[in-house]
């Protein structure tokens, strides 16, 4: 795993956290009522993931094996706190709409999962690439779900109205059930293509 491009591509496509590994579901479903929220959440998570991966990789020989999980959690929580402060200071509107889900990045299984599976076993450069790959994969997935829900639910894309006013909005899609339906149907579509490819 010394080829950085390969590591990044692996995170975005082959092991996409949302569609292939199916982890980190809570923010995926909760904040994707619009594309901008989805991208904001994705990038915040990616930032935490990259920093946490880097530091855990640097510290991997110092951290005793038995207490590694609490150590990882402290590192992750530190970066989440930093990201929360940055958002509060520079993007207060985004911070308000993501709300509770920013502190909850700590318990996003993607970050702890990558720390345990990758950063604690690989060098800092590879770990950064792995963070970028998985972070971007997560962001892209959230953006796709956000775009679909925003389009169907409020007739806009990135807050710009695209559907004519006369066309009815399906409000359900920006509420909780829409999140489950959108993700379910997208995963089913991906499965369908994969089955076709195999056959």
């Amino acid at each position: 795993m010394s080829n950085p491009i390969k590591v990044i591509k692996n995170g975005i496509i082959d092991e996409n956290p949302t569609f292939v590994q199916v982890i980190g579901m809570c923010p995926t479903l909760a904040v994707t009522s619009s594309a901008i929220n989805g991208i904001g959440m994705g990038l915040s998570t990616a930032a935490v993931l990259i920093c946490a991966n880097l530091f855990i990789s640097l510290l991997r020989k110092i951290i005793p094996d038995k207490v590694r999980i609490p150590c990882f959690i402290v590192v992750i929580a530190t970066f989440v706190t930093i990201v929360e402060f940055l958002l509060k200071a520079y993007l207060p509107a985004l911070n308000a709409s993501l709300g509770l889900y920013i502190p909850l990045i700590v318990v996003n299984c993607i970050i702890l999962g990558r720390a345990e599976a990758f950063a604690s076993k690989n060098g800092p450069i590879d770990s950064i690439c792995d963070g970028i790959g998985n972070g971007l994969g997560f962001t892209i997935a959230l953006a796709c779900i956000g775009l679909v829900r925003e389009f169907i639910g409020s007739g806009t894309l990135f807050n710009i109205t695209v559907l004519p006013e006369a066309f009815p909005r399906t409000l359900l899609f920006i509420m909780a059930p829409g999140a489950f339906f959108t993700l379910g149907c997208m995963m089913a579509a991906l499965n369908h293509f994969r089955n076709k490819k195999k056959a």
């Binding site: 359900l172 059930p177 489950f180 339906f181 379910g184 995963m187 089913a188 499965n191 369908h192 089955n195």
Partner: peptide, 23 residues
């Protein structure tokens, strides 16, 4: 279930329906 919906997709759609019920 349709083949493409096996596993997670079906579970998600089910959760969506439950969510409507709780609405």
């Amino acid at each position: 279930t349709p083949k493409a919906f096996d596993g997670f997709p079906m579970a998600l759609v089910t959760a969506g329906l439950m969510s409507i019920a709780f609405l």
